[in-house]
Design a protein around this nucleic acid. Structure first.
Length: 556
RNA sequence: UGUCCCGUGGUGUAAUUGGCAACACGUCUGAUUUUGGUUCAGAAGAGUCCAAGUUCGAGCCUUGGCGGGACAACCA
Protein backbone atom coordinates (compact mmCIF):
# COMPACT_ATOMS: atom_id res chain seq x y z
CA UNK A 1 0.00 0.00 0.00
CA UNK A 2 1.50 3.26 -1.11
CA UNK A 3 1.32 6.25 1.17
CA UNK A 4 -0.87 9.03 -0.08
CA UNK A 5 1.22 12.11 -0.84
CA UNK A 6 0.87 14.85 1.72
CA UNK A 7 -0.48 18.26 0.94
CA UNK A 8 1.57 21.22 2.07
CA UNK A 9 -0.40 21.69 5.28
CA UNK A 10 0.04 18.06 6.27
CA UNK A 11 3.75 18.43 5.62
CA UNK A 12 3.93 21.37 7.99
CA UNK A 13 1.98 19.45 10.63
CA UNK A 14 4.12 16.34 10.35
CA UNK A 15 7.21 18.49 10.75
CA UNK A 16 5.76 20.25 13.77
CA UNK A 17 4.83 16.94 15.33
CA UNK A 18 8.17 15.26 14.67
CA UNK A 19 10.10 18.31 15.89
CA UNK A 20 8.00 18.31 19.02
CA UNK A 21 6.83 21.84 18.37
CA UNK A 22 3.44 20.46 19.29
CA UNK A 23 2.46 17.19 20.95
CA UNK A 24 -1.03 17.39 19.50
CA UNK A 25 -2.56 19.57 16.84
CA UNK A 26 -5.56 21.78 17.42
CA UNK A 27 -7.51 23.27 14.51
CA UNK A 28 -10.76 25.11 14.19
CA UNK A 29 -13.49 25.96 11.72
CA UNK A 30 -14.51 29.61 12.29
CA UNK A 31 -17.61 30.62 10.27
CA UNK A 32 -19.51 33.85 10.71
CA UNK A 33 -23.18 33.04 11.38
CA UNK A 34 -24.42 35.32 8.63
CA UNK A 35 -25.41 32.85 5.93
CA UNK A 36 -25.63 29.20 5.00
CA UNK A 37 -22.58 27.06 4.42
CA UNK A 38 -21.61 26.20 0.85
CA UNK A 39 -19.44 23.57 -0.76
CA UNK A 40 -16.42 25.85 -0.36
CA UNK A 41 -16.95 25.76 3.39
CA UNK A 42 -17.25 22.00 3.10
CA UNK A 43 -13.70 21.95 1.77
CA UNK A 44 -12.54 23.92 4.80
CA UNK A 45 -14.56 21.76 7.19
CA UNK A 46 -13.16 18.55 5.72
CA UNK A 47 -9.68 20.04 5.92
CA UNK A 48 -9.82 21.28 9.50
CA UNK A 49 -11.83 18.45 11.03
CA UNK A 50 -10.07 15.94 8.79
CA UNK A 51 -6.66 17.11 9.94
CA UNK A 52 -7.62 16.72 13.58
CA UNK A 53 -9.04 13.25 12.90
CA UNK A 54 -6.01 12.07 10.99
CA UNK A 55 -3.46 13.40 13.43
CA UNK A 56 -5.46 12.56 16.56
CA UNK A 57 -5.84 16.19 17.50
CA UNK A 58 -8.79 18.43 18.25
CA UNK A 59 -10.94 20.78 16.23
CA UNK A 60 -13.22 23.52 17.46
CA UNK A 61 -16.30 24.93 15.88
CA UNK A 62 -16.16 28.63 16.64
CA UNK A 63 -18.63 31.20 15.45
CA UNK A 64 -16.97 34.48 14.60
CA UNK A 65 -19.82 36.63 15.82
CA UNK A 66 -18.32 40.11 16.06
CA UNK A 67 -20.84 41.89 13.86
CA UNK A 68 -24.32 41.67 15.41
CA UNK A 69 -26.03 43.57 12.62
CA UNK A 70 -25.46 40.73 10.15
CA UNK A 71 -25.64 37.68 12.33
CA UNK A 72 -28.46 35.47 13.49
CA UNK A 73 -29.16 32.27 15.44
CA UNK A 74 -30.91 30.84 12.38
CA UNK A 75 -27.50 30.64 10.79
CA UNK A 76 -25.73 29.11 13.77
CA UNK A 77 -28.28 26.32 13.83
CA UNK A 78 -28.00 25.61 10.12
CA UNK A 79 -24.21 25.61 10.29
CA UNK A 80 -24.18 23.14 13.17
CA UNK A 81 -26.59 20.91 11.31
CA UNK A 82 -24.49 20.96 8.15
CA UNK A 83 -21.29 20.07 9.95
CA UNK A 84 -22.95 17.20 11.79
CA UNK A 85 -24.48 15.99 8.57
CA UNK A 86 -21.05 15.88 6.97
CA UNK A 87 -20.10 13.59 9.82
CA UNK A 88 -17.79 15.74 11.90
CA UNK A 89 -17.76 16.44 15.62
CA UNK A 90 -16.29 19.46 17.28
CA UNK A 91 -14.36 19.46 20.52
CA UNK A 92 -16.39 20.13 23.67
CA UNK A 93 -19.18 22.67 23.34
CA UNK A 94 -19.51 25.10 20.46
CA UNK A 95 -17.26 28.16 20.83
CA UNK A 96 -18.14 31.77 20.09
CA UNK A 97 -15.89 34.75 19.67
CA UNK A 98 -18.43 36.56 21.83
CA UNK A 99 -17.23 34.33 24.69
CA UNK A 100 -14.03 36.36 24.58
CA UNK A 101 -15.51 39.85 24.53
CA UNK A 102 -14.30 40.50 28.10
CA UNK A 103 -10.80 39.24 27.39
CA UNK A 104 -10.64 41.24 24.21
CA UNK A 105 -11.83 44.36 26.00
CA UNK A 106 -9.18 43.96 28.66
CA UNK A 107 -6.53 43.43 26.02
CA UNK A 108 -7.66 46.63 24.30
CA UNK A 109 -7.20 48.52 27.56
CA UNK A 110 -3.75 47.03 27.91
CA UNK A 111 -2.89 48.28 24.43
CA UNK A 112 -4.10 51.78 25.27
CA UNK A 113 -2.03 51.79 28.43
CA UNK A 114 1.09 50.67 26.61
CA UNK A 115 0.57 53.40 24.06
CA UNK A 116 -0.30 50.93 21.31
CA UNK A 117 -3.89 52.05 20.83
CA UNK A 118 -5.84 55.30 20.87
CA UNK A 119 -9.33 56.62 20.52
CA UNK A 120 -9.82 58.31 17.15
CA UNK A 121 -12.54 60.75 16.05
CA UNK A 122 -12.15 60.57 12.32
CA UNK A 123 -15.38 59.82 10.48
CA UNK A 124 -15.69 57.16 7.82
CA UNK A 125 -14.82 59.43 4.96
CA UNK A 126 -11.88 61.06 6.69
CA UNK A 127 -10.63 57.68 7.72
CA UNK A 128 -10.61 56.53 4.13
CA UNK A 129 -8.64 59.58 3.06
CA UNK A 130 -6.14 59.23 5.86
CA UNK A 131 -5.59 55.57 5.07
CA UNK A 132 -3.96 56.27 1.71
CA UNK A 133 -3.94 53.67 -1.04
CA UNK A 134 -1.94 50.49 -1.60
CA UNK A 135 0.68 52.51 -3.45
CA UNK A 136 0.59 55.69 -1.37
CA UNK A 137 1.28 55.94 2.35
CA UNK A 138 -1.44 57.09 4.71
CA UNK A 139 -1.49 60.08 7.05
CA UNK A 140 -1.47 59.98 10.81
CA UNK A 141 -4.70 60.79 12.59
CA UNK A 142 -4.74 64.08 14.55
CA UNK A 143 -5.89 62.00 17.55
CA UNK A 144 -3.04 59.58 17.29
CA UNK A 145 -1.05 61.07 20.16
CA UNK A 146 -3.93 61.70 22.48
CA UNK A 147 -3.19 61.17 26.18
CA UNK A 148 -3.41 57.61 27.36
CA UNK A 149 -5.68 58.71 30.18
CA UNK A 150 -8.00 60.49 27.79
CA UNK A 151 -8.20 57.46 25.50
CA UNK A 152 -8.96 55.31 28.49
CA UNK A 153 -11.80 57.57 29.60
CA UNK A 154 -13.23 57.84 26.11
CA UNK A 155 -13.00 54.08 25.53
CA UNK A 156 -14.81 53.55 28.83
CA UNK A 157 -17.49 55.95 27.60
CA UNK A 158 -17.76 54.08 24.31
CA UNK A 159 -18.31 50.88 26.22
CA UNK A 160 -20.95 52.49 28.43
CA UNK A 161 -22.91 53.76 25.47
CA UNK A 162 -22.24 57.42 26.19
CA UNK A 163 -21.58 58.24 22.53
CA UNK A 164 -23.37 57.88 19.25
CA UNK A 165 -22.40 55.22 16.74
CA UNK A 166 -19.52 56.42 14.60
CA UNK A 167 -18.44 59.13 17.00
CA UNK A 168 -15.35 57.34 18.27
CA UNK A 169 -13.18 54.41 17.28
CA UNK A 170 -10.43 52.56 19.01
CA UNK A 171 -7.43 52.11 16.71
CA UNK A 172 -4.10 50.40 17.06
CA UNK A 173 -1.06 52.63 16.74
CA UNK A 174 1.17 50.86 14.26
CA UNK A 175 2.39 52.49 11.06
CA UNK A 176 0.41 54.70 8.70
CA UNK A 177 3.16 54.41 6.10
CA UNK A 178 3.27 50.62 6.08
CA UNK A 179 3.13 49.10 2.60
CA UNK A 180 0.65 46.66 4.15
CA UNK A 181 -2.67 48.48 4.40
CA UNK A 182 -3.74 46.37 7.35
CA UNK A 183 -0.95 47.81 9.47
CA UNK A 184 -2.09 51.41 8.97
CA UNK A 185 -3.59 51.91 12.44
CA UNK A 186 -6.40 49.37 12.01
CA UNK A 187 -9.70 49.76 13.81
CA UNK A 188 -10.01 47.64 16.94
CA UNK A 189 -13.44 48.62 18.23
CA UNK A 190 -16.46 50.45 16.87
CA UNK A 191 -19.65 51.57 18.59
CA UNK A 192 -22.74 49.55 17.66
CA UNK A 193 -26.13 49.81 19.34
CA UNK A 194 -27.21 46.46 18.03
CA UNK A 195 -28.77 43.48 19.68
CA UNK A 196 -26.28 40.64 19.60
CA UNK A 197 -27.77 37.17 19.16
CA UNK A 198 -25.92 35.93 22.23
CA UNK A 199 -24.88 38.90 24.37
CA UNK A 200 -28.04 40.92 23.80
CA UNK A 201 -27.57 44.57 24.71
CA UNK A 202 -24.67 44.06 27.09
CA UNK A 203 -22.15 45.56 24.71
CA UNK A 204 -22.24 48.92 22.95
CA UNK A 205 -18.89 48.31 21.32
CA UNK A 206 -17.82 45.35 19.22
CA UNK A 207 -14.33 44.23 18.23
CA UNK A 208 -13.42 44.09 14.57
CA UNK A 209 -12.79 40.66 13.09
CA UNK A 210 -9.10 41.44 12.72
CA UNK A 211 -8.84 42.27 16.41
CA UNK A 212 -10.74 39.17 17.46
CA UNK A 213 -9.80 36.35 15.19
CA UNK A 214 -6.14 35.72 15.90
CA UNK A 215 -6.59 36.26 19.61
CA UNK A 216 -9.50 33.82 19.70
CA UNK A 217 -7.25 31.20 18.16
CA UNK A 218 -4.69 32.04 20.81
CA UNK A 219 -7.20 31.80 23.66
CA UNK A 220 -8.29 28.38 22.43
CA UNK A 221 -4.78 27.02 22.06
CA UNK A 222 -5.14 26.52 18.33
CA UNK A 223 -1.86 25.27 16.84
CA UNK A 224 -2.67 25.57 13.15
CA UNK A 225 -5.01 28.33 12.02
CA UNK A 226 -5.97 27.23 8.56
CA UNK A 227 -7.72 29.87 6.47
CA UNK A 228 -8.13 31.07 2.92
CA UNK A 229 -5.66 33.07 0.86
CA UNK A 230 -7.21 36.50 1.28
CA UNK A 231 -6.12 36.57 4.91
CA UNK A 232 -2.49 36.22 3.99
CA UNK A 233 -1.93 39.98 4.14
CA UNK A 234 -3.63 40.11 7.54
CA UNK A 235 -1.15 37.72 9.07
CA UNK A 236 1.45 40.36 10.06
CA UNK A 237 -1.27 42.20 11.94
CA UNK A 238 -2.41 39.08 13.79
CA UNK A 239 1.19 38.37 14.68
CA UNK A 240 1.57 41.93 15.95
CA UNK A 241 -1.40 41.49 18.29
CA UNK A 242 -0.21 38.14 19.56
CA UNK A 243 3.25 39.53 20.24
CA UNK A 244 1.64 42.16 22.45
CA UNK A 245 -0.57 39.59 24.12
CA UNK A 246 1.48 36.42 24.50
CA UNK A 247 3.26 35.52 27.69
CA UNK A 248 4.97 32.42 26.32
CA UNK A 249 6.53 31.04 23.15
CA UNK A 250 3.21 29.61 21.99
CA UNK A 251 1.75 31.13 18.84
CA UNK A 252 -1.03 29.81 16.59
CA UNK A 253 0.43 29.37 13.12
CA UNK A 254 -1.75 30.70 10.35
CA UNK A 255 -1.60 28.77 7.09
CA UNK A 256 -3.49 29.93 4.02
CA UNK A 257 -4.88 27.78 1.23
CA UNK A 258 -6.84 28.51 -1.94
CA UNK A 259 -10.61 28.59 -1.59
CA UNK A 260 -12.72 26.30 -3.74
CA UNK A 261 -14.14 27.56 -7.02
CA UNK A 262 -16.53 25.34 -8.90
CA UNK A 263 -17.48 25.74 -12.54
CA UNK A 264 -21.01 26.86 -13.44
CA UNK A 265 -21.77 28.33 -10.03
CA UNK A 266 -20.86 31.16 -7.67
CA UNK A 267 -19.41 30.70 -4.25
CA UNK A 268 -19.71 33.90 -2.28
CA UNK A 269 -22.24 34.22 0.51
CA UNK A 270 -23.12 37.69 -0.74
CA UNK A 271 -23.96 36.44 -4.23
CA UNK A 272 -25.82 33.41 -2.94
CA UNK A 273 -27.85 35.69 -0.69
CA UNK A 274 -28.63 37.79 -3.73
CA UNK A 275 -29.96 34.73 -5.58
CA UNK A 276 -32.15 33.87 -2.62
CA UNK A 277 -33.46 37.37 -2.04
CA UNK A 278 -34.22 38.05 -5.67
CA UNK A 279 -36.05 34.69 -5.90
CA UNK A 280 -33.90 33.26 -8.66
CA UNK A 281 -33.93 30.18 -6.49
CA UNK A 282 -36.35 28.95 -3.86
CA UNK A 283 -34.31 29.48 -0.72
CA UNK A 284 -30.90 28.53 0.59
CA UNK A 285 -31.62 24.83 0.24
CA UNK A 286 -32.82 25.01 -3.33
CA UNK A 287 -31.24 21.92 -4.93
CA UNK A 288 -29.55 24.13 -7.51
CA UNK A 289 -27.67 26.05 -4.84
CA UNK A 290 -24.05 25.11 -4.08
CA UNK A 291 -24.93 25.23 -0.39
CA UNK A 292 -24.47 22.16 1.74
CA UNK A 293 -28.21 22.19 2.46
CA UNK A 294 -28.86 22.51 -1.28
CA UNK A 295 -26.70 19.52 -2.09
CA UNK A 296 -28.31 17.56 0.72
CA UNK A 297 -31.78 18.23 -0.66
CA UNK A 298 -30.55 17.44 -4.15
CA UNK A 299 -29.51 13.99 -2.95
CA UNK A 300 -25.77 14.33 -2.48
CA UNK A 301 -24.43 12.17 0.32
CA UNK A 302 -21.96 13.30 2.99
CA UNK A 303 -19.55 10.63 1.79
CA UNK A 304 -19.63 11.96 -1.76
CA UNK A 305 -18.78 15.45 -0.57
CA UNK A 306 -16.01 14.22 1.67
CA UNK A 307 -14.55 12.13 -1.12
CA UNK A 308 -14.78 15.09 -3.44
CA UNK A 309 -13.01 17.18 -0.88
CA UNK A 310 -10.22 14.62 -0.72
CA UNK A 311 -9.85 14.49 -4.45
CA UNK A 312 -9.59 18.21 -5.10
CA UNK A 313 -6.52 18.54 -2.89
CA UNK A 314 -5.20 21.55 -1.04
CA UNK A 315 -2.81 24.13 -2.43
CA UNK A 316 -2.12 27.83 -2.59
CA UNK A 317 -2.83 28.42 -6.24
CA UNK A 318 -6.42 29.22 -7.00
CA UNK A 319 -8.30 27.74 -9.89
CA UNK A 320 -11.57 26.18 -10.88
CA UNK A 321 -12.66 22.66 -10.13
CA UNK A 322 -14.70 21.08 -12.87
CA UNK A 323 -18.19 20.33 -11.57
CA UNK A 324 -17.82 17.01 -13.41
CA UNK A 325 -15.57 15.88 -10.59
CA UNK A 326 -18.31 16.51 -8.04
CA UNK A 327 -20.79 14.66 -10.24
CA UNK A 328 -18.36 11.78 -10.50
CA UNK A 329 -18.13 11.66 -6.70
CA UNK A 330 -21.86 11.35 -6.19
CA UNK A 331 -22.30 8.79 -8.98
CA UNK A 332 -19.50 6.71 -7.50
CA UNK A 333 -21.20 6.67 -4.10
CA UNK A 334 -24.77 6.18 -5.25
CA UNK A 335 -23.82 3.45 -7.69
CA UNK A 336 -22.97 1.31 -4.68
CA UNK A 337 -25.84 2.43 -2.45
CA UNK A 338 -28.93 3.27 -4.46
CA UNK A 339 -31.53 0.63 -5.28
CA UNK A 340 -32.54 0.46 -8.91
CA UNK A 341 -36.11 1.10 -9.96
CA UNK A 342 -37.89 1.81 -13.22
CA UNK A 343 -39.53 5.11 -13.96
CA UNK A 344 -40.60 6.60 -17.27
CA UNK A 345 -40.15 10.35 -17.44
CA UNK A 346 -41.91 11.00 -20.75
CA UNK A 347 -44.36 8.15 -21.26
CA UNK A 348 -45.26 6.65 -24.63
CA UNK A 349 -47.96 3.95 -24.64
CA UNK A 350 -47.03 0.48 -25.82
CA UNK A 351 -49.65 -2.16 -26.51
CA UNK A 352 -48.61 -5.81 -26.60
CA UNK A 353 -51.18 -7.09 -29.06
CA UNK A 354 -50.59 -10.77 -28.43
CA UNK A 355 -50.62 -10.49 -24.63
CA UNK A 356 -53.85 -11.70 -22.99
CA UNK A 357 -56.28 -8.86 -22.28
CA UNK A 358 -56.83 -9.07 -18.53
CA UNK A 359 -53.70 -10.88 -17.57
CA UNK A 360 -50.94 -9.57 -15.37
CA UNK A 361 -47.85 -11.08 -13.83
CA UNK A 362 -45.10 -10.13 -11.41
CA UNK A 363 -41.55 -10.36 -12.57
CA UNK A 364 -38.32 -10.52 -10.59
CA UNK A 365 -36.09 -7.47 -10.67
CA UNK A 366 -32.68 -7.08 -9.03
CA UNK A 367 -32.50 -4.17 -6.60
CA UNK A 368 -28.83 -3.43 -6.91
CA UNK A 369 -26.46 -5.39 -9.14
CA UNK A 370 -23.55 -3.87 -7.17
CA UNK A 371 -24.90 -5.22 -3.88
CA UNK A 372 -26.47 -8.66 -3.85
CA UNK A 373 -27.65 -8.24 -0.26
CA UNK A 374 -30.24 -5.73 -1.48
CA UNK A 375 -32.21 -8.65 -2.89
CA UNK A 376 -35.01 -8.62 -5.44
CA UNK A 377 -38.47 -7.16 -5.87
CA UNK A 378 -41.52 -7.91 -8.01
CA UNK A 379 -42.49 -5.66 -10.89
CA UNK A 380 -45.97 -5.91 -12.45
CA UNK A 381 -46.34 -6.50 -16.19
CA UNK A 382 -49.47 -6.28 -18.33
CA UNK A 383 -50.74 -5.71 -21.85
CA UNK A 384 -50.38 -1.93 -21.81
CA UNK A 385 -47.09 -0.37 -20.86
CA UNK A 386 -45.25 2.93 -20.93
CA UNK A 387 -41.82 3.36 -22.38
CA UNK A 388 -39.69 6.45 -22.73
CA UNK A 389 -40.63 8.57 -25.76
CA UNK A 390 -37.00 8.88 -26.77
CA UNK A 391 -36.67 5.09 -26.82
CA UNK A 392 -38.80 4.86 -29.96
CA UNK A 393 -37.92 6.29 -33.36
CA UNK A 394 -39.73 5.86 -36.63
CA UNK A 395 -36.64 6.61 -38.63
CA UNK A 396 -33.77 5.59 -36.41
CA UNK A 397 -30.27 6.78 -37.25
CA UNK A 398 -27.26 4.51 -37.31
CA UNK A 399 -26.19 3.30 -33.88
CA UNK A 400 -29.70 3.68 -32.44
CA UNK A 401 -30.26 0.44 -30.57
CA UNK A 402 -33.75 1.03 -29.29
CA UNK A 403 -37.26 0.43 -30.59
CA UNK A 404 -38.40 1.15 -34.14
CA UNK A 405 -40.86 -0.45 -36.54
CA UNK A 406 -39.80 -4.02 -37.17
CA UNK A 407 -37.13 -3.92 -34.44
CA UNK A 408 -36.88 -6.17 -31.44
CA UNK A 409 -35.66 -5.04 -28.04
CA UNK A 410 -35.69 -6.36 -24.51
CA UNK A 411 -37.89 -4.92 -21.79
CA UNK A 412 -35.74 -5.16 -18.73
CA UNK A 413 -36.58 -8.22 -16.55
CA UNK A 414 -39.62 -8.88 -18.81
CA UNK A 415 -39.78 -9.98 -22.43
CA UNK A 416 -38.44 -9.37 -25.89
CA UNK A 417 -40.90 -7.25 -27.81
CA UNK A 418 -41.06 -6.43 -31.50
CA UNK A 419 -42.74 -3.38 -32.92
CA UNK A 420 -45.34 -4.04 -35.61
CA UNK A 421 -46.97 -0.68 -36.24
CA UNK A 422 -47.82 2.67 -34.65
CA UNK A 423 -50.80 4.97 -34.21
CA UNK A 424 -50.51 8.71 -34.76
CA UNK A 425 -52.46 11.82 -33.97
CA UNK A 426 -53.53 14.42 -36.53
CA UNK A 427 -50.24 16.21 -36.18
CA UNK A 428 -48.37 13.06 -37.08
CA UNK A 429 -47.01 12.36 -33.61
CA UNK A 430 -46.72 8.76 -32.57
CA UNK A 431 -49.30 8.16 -29.84
CA UNK A 432 -49.24 4.38 -29.48
CA UNK A 433 -46.74 1.73 -30.35
CA UNK A 434 -48.02 -1.75 -31.13
CA UNK A 435 -45.80 -4.69 -30.42
CA UNK A 436 -45.84 -8.44 -30.08
CA UNK A 437 -43.96 -10.21 -27.34
CA UNK A 438 -42.17 -13.53 -27.26
CA UNK A 439 -43.59 -15.52 -24.33
CA UNK A 440 -40.52 -17.72 -24.36
CA UNK A 441 -38.28 -14.77 -23.49
CA UNK A 442 -39.74 -14.28 -20.03
CA UNK A 443 -37.29 -12.67 -17.65
CA UNK A 444 -35.44 -11.19 -20.60
CA UNK A 445 -33.63 -14.24 -21.94
CA UNK A 446 -34.44 -15.89 -25.21
CA UNK A 447 -34.04 -19.68 -25.16
CA UNK A 448 -32.97 -19.74 -28.82
CA UNK A 449 -30.04 -17.55 -27.92
CA UNK A 450 -30.91 -14.67 -30.19
CA UNK A 451 -29.56 -11.29 -29.17
CA UNK A 452 -31.08 -7.86 -29.07
CA UNK A 453 -29.09 -4.65 -29.09
CA UNK A 454 -31.20 -2.68 -26.68
CA UNK A 455 -32.67 -3.13 -23.21
CA UNK A 456 -35.27 -0.63 -22.13
CA UNK A 457 -36.98 0.35 -18.91
CA UNK A 458 -40.77 0.38 -18.76
CA UNK A 459 -43.74 0.46 -16.41
CA UNK A 460 -47.08 -1.30 -16.55
CA UNK A 461 -49.70 1.33 -17.41
CA UNK A 462 -52.40 0.16 -15.06
CA UNK A 463 -50.05 -0.33 -12.13
CA UNK A 464 -47.93 2.79 -12.58
CA UNK A 465 -48.05 5.72 -10.21
CA UNK A 466 -47.74 9.28 -11.34
CA UNK A 467 -45.10 11.50 -9.79
CA UNK A 468 -43.67 14.95 -9.99
CA UNK A 469 -40.05 15.01 -10.93
CA UNK A 470 -37.80 18.01 -10.65
CA UNK A 471 -34.99 17.96 -13.14
CA UNK A 472 -32.11 20.21 -12.27
CA UNK A 473 -29.42 21.54 -14.49
CA UNK A 474 -26.49 23.84 -13.75
CA UNK A 475 -27.45 27.20 -12.32
CA UNK A 476 -25.34 29.21 -14.75
CA UNK A 477 -24.75 28.83 -18.44
CA UNK A 478 -21.06 29.75 -18.31
CA UNK A 479 -18.16 28.20 -16.41
CA UNK A 480 -17.34 31.36 -14.51
CA UNK A 481 -20.27 33.75 -14.11
CA UNK A 482 -17.98 36.23 -12.39
CA UNK A 483 -15.39 36.45 -15.13
CA UNK A 484 -17.13 39.30 -16.91
CA UNK A 485 -16.27 42.58 -15.20
CA UNK A 486 -18.94 44.52 -17.07
CA UNK A 487 -21.88 42.19 -16.77
CA UNK A 488 -23.54 41.19 -13.53
CA UNK A 489 -23.27 37.49 -12.70
CA UNK A 490 -27.05 37.15 -12.65
CA UNK A 491 -27.06 37.81 -16.38
CA UNK A 492 -25.54 34.35 -16.87
CA UNK A 493 -28.23 32.44 -15.04
CA UNK A 494 -29.39 29.34 -16.88
CA UNK A 495 -33.10 29.89 -17.46
CA UNK A 496 -33.64 26.15 -17.77
CA UNK A 497 -31.97 25.13 -14.54
CA UNK A 498 -35.25 23.67 -13.27
CA UNK A 499 -37.69 21.60 -15.29
CA UNK A 500 -40.75 20.35 -13.48
CA UNK A 501 -42.08 17.13 -14.93
CA UNK A 502 -45.57 16.09 -13.83
CA UNK A 503 -46.22 13.30 -16.27
CA UNK A 504 -43.68 10.75 -15.11
CA UNK A 505 -44.91 7.21 -14.40
CA UNK A 506 -43.15 5.04 -11.86
CA UNK A 507 -43.30 1.44 -10.82
CA UNK A 508 -45.69 0.93 -7.85
CA UNK A 509 -42.83 -0.10 -5.57
CA UNK A 510 -42.09 3.62 -5.11
CA UNK A 511 -45.49 4.49 -3.70
CA UNK A 512 -44.26 4.45 -0.13
CA UNK A 513 -40.83 6.00 -0.71
CA UNK A 514 -39.88 8.28 2.16
CA UNK A 515 -38.41 11.75 2.10
CA UNK A 516 -34.69 11.58 1.49
CA UNK A 517 -34.69 8.04 0.08
CA UNK A 518 -32.48 7.60 -2.93
CA UNK A 519 -32.91 5.50 -6.04
CA UNK A 520 -31.39 4.97 -9.39
CA UNK A 521 -34.04 5.21 -12.06
CA UNK A 522 -32.48 2.80 -14.49
CA UNK A 523 -30.90 4.53 -17.48
CA UNK A 524 -32.11 7.95 -16.26
CA UNK A 525 -30.08 8.90 -13.23
CA UNK A 526 -30.15 9.12 -9.47
CA UNK A 527 -33.19 10.58 -7.77
CA UNK A 528 -34.24 11.27 -4.20
CA UNK A 529 -37.59 11.94 -2.58
CA UNK A 530 -37.94 15.65 -1.89
CA UNK A 531 -38.91 16.97 1.53
CA UNK A 532 -42.09 18.45 -0.02
CA UNK A 533 -43.19 15.01 -1.12
CA UNK A 534 -46.32 13.38 0.30
CA UNK A 535 -48.28 10.18 -0.20
CA UNK A 536 -50.69 11.77 -2.67
CA UNK A 537 -48.10 13.97 -4.33
CA UNK A 538 -44.86 12.12 -4.74
CA UNK A 539 -41.95 14.40 -5.63
CA UNK A 540 -38.51 13.33 -6.75
CA UNK A 541 -35.41 15.45 -7.29
CA UNK A 542 -32.92 14.37 -9.89
CA UNK A 543 -29.55 14.34 -8.14
CA UNK A 544 -27.51 13.67 -11.27
CA UNK A 545 -27.94 11.87 -14.56
CA UNK A 546 -26.14 8.66 -15.37
CA UNK A 547 -23.18 8.95 -17.67
CA UNK A 548 -24.71 8.79 -21.10
CA UNK A 549 -22.60 7.72 -24.04
CA UNK A 550 -25.62 7.69 -26.33
CA UNK A 551 -26.20 11.38 -25.65
CA UNK A 552 -22.64 12.03 -26.81
CA UNK A 553 -23.11 10.09 -30.01
CA UNK A 554 -26.45 11.75 -30.64
CA UNK A 555 -25.08 15.24 -30.18
CA UNK A 556 -22.03 14.77 -32.35
C1' U B 1 3.32 51.81 -9.68
C1' G B 2 3.79 49.55 -3.13
C1' U B 3 3.53 44.89 -0.12
C1' C B 4 2.37 39.79 -0.04
C1' C B 5 1.11 35.16 -2.62
C1' C B 6 0.97 31.93 -6.88
C1' G B 7 2.52 29.92 -12.20
C1' U B 8 3.27 21.57 -13.84
C1' G B 9 -1.54 17.90 -19.65
C1' G B 10 -8.36 20.53 -20.92
C1' U B 11 -9.27 20.65 -15.18
C1' G B 12 -7.34 19.67 -10.23
C1' U B 13 -3.34 17.69 -7.47
C1' A B 14 1.80 14.74 -7.11
C1' A B 15 6.92 14.27 -7.98
C1' U B 16 9.87 14.87 0.46
C1' U B 17 18.31 15.15 0.87
C1' G B 18 18.30 17.74 -7.56
C1' G B 19 18.04 11.65 -11.26
C1' C B 20 14.65 12.92 -18.22
C1' A B 21 6.91 14.22 -14.90
C1' A B 22 2.69 10.49 -11.73
C1' C B 23 -2.51 10.14 -10.15
C1' A B 24 -7.70 11.58 -10.50
C1' C B 25 -11.61 13.82 -13.39
C1' G B 26 -12.61 14.72 -18.44
C1' U B 27 -11.76 13.01 -23.67
C1' C B 28 -11.12 8.88 -27.22
C1' U B 29 -10.72 3.42 -28.50
C1' G B 30 -11.89 -1.67 -27.49
C1' A B 31 -13.96 -5.83 -24.31
C1' U B 32 -17.83 -7.46 -21.04
C1' U B 33 -22.85 -6.36 -19.84
C1' U B 34 -30.59 -7.88 -19.22
C1' U B 35 -29.01 -0.12 -17.36
C1' G B 36 -25.73 3.11 -24.18
C1' G B 37 -24.88 2.45 -16.25
C1' U B 38 -21.06 -0.37 -13.67
C1' U B 39 -16.54 -3.07 -14.50
C1' C B 40 -12.08 -4.17 -17.32
C1' A B 41 -8.09 -3.17 -20.93
C1' G B 42 -5.81 0.59 -23.60
C1' A B 43 -4.77 5.52 -26.05
C1' A B 44 -4.13 10.59 -26.83
C1' G B 45 -2.81 14.82 -24.14
C1' A B 46 2.21 18.68 -20.32
C1' G B 47 8.45 18.46 -21.16
C1' U B 48 6.78 21.94 -15.90
C1' C B 49 5.45 30.71 -17.81
C1' C B 50 10.23 32.71 -20.22
C1' A B 51 15.54 33.56 -20.05
C1' A B 52 20.22 33.07 -18.01
C1' G B 53 23.14 30.67 -14.20
C1' U B 54 24.95 26.59 -10.67
C1' U B 55 25.39 21.17 -11.65
C1' C B 56 27.38 15.16 -14.77
C1' G B 57 22.10 16.15 -14.21
C1' A B 58 17.03 21.40 -12.59
C1' G B 59 9.73 21.10 -12.21
C1' C B 60 12.72 21.38 -7.65
C1' C B 61 18.47 25.77 -6.21
C1' U B 62 20.06 31.27 -7.81
C1' U B 63 19.12 35.81 -10.55
C1' G B 64 16.24 38.64 -13.83
C1' G B 65 11.92 39.05 -16.52
C1' C B 66 6.65 37.89 -17.83
C1' G B 67 1.75 36.50 -16.32
C1' G B 68 -2.24 35.86 -12.64
C1' G B 69 -4.33 36.90 -7.78
C1' A B 70 -5.00 39.37 -2.86
C1' C B 71 -4.90 44.10 -0.05
C1' A B 72 -7.50 50.91 0.04
C1' A B 73 -15.58 47.98 4.52
C1' C B 74 -16.61 51.45 11.44
C1' C B 75 -17.57 43.27 6.78
C1' A B 76 -15.71 38.53 7.84
Amino acid sequence: MQKKPLNFIESIIEDDLSNNKHQQIYTRFPPEPNGYLHIGHAKSICLNFGLSENYKGKCNLRFDDTNPVKEDVEYVESIKEDIKWLGFNWEDEVKFTSNYFDKLYNFAIKLIKSGDAYVCELNAEQLRKYRGTPTEPGKESPWRNRDVAESLTLFEGMKNGDFDEGKYLLRAKIDMASPNMHMRDPILYRIRFANHHRTGNTWKIYPMYDFAHGQSDYFEGITHSVCTLEFEVHRPLYDWFIDKLADSEYRPQQIEFARLNLTYTVMSKRKLLELVESNFVNGWDDPRMPTISGFRRRGYTPESIRNFSDKIGVAKRDGFIDVALLEHSIREDLNKKADRVMGVLNPLKVIIDNYPEDSEEYLDAVNNPEDESRGKRKVPFSKELFIEQEDFMENPPRKFFRLGIGREVRLRYAYFIKCTHVEKDDAGNVTKVHCTYDPASKGGKSPDGRKVKGTMHWVSAKHAIRSEIRLYDRLFSVENPQADKEKDFKGFINENSLEVNKIAMLEPHLKTAKSGEQFQFERKGYFCVDKDSSLDNLIFNRTVTLRDSWAKIKNS
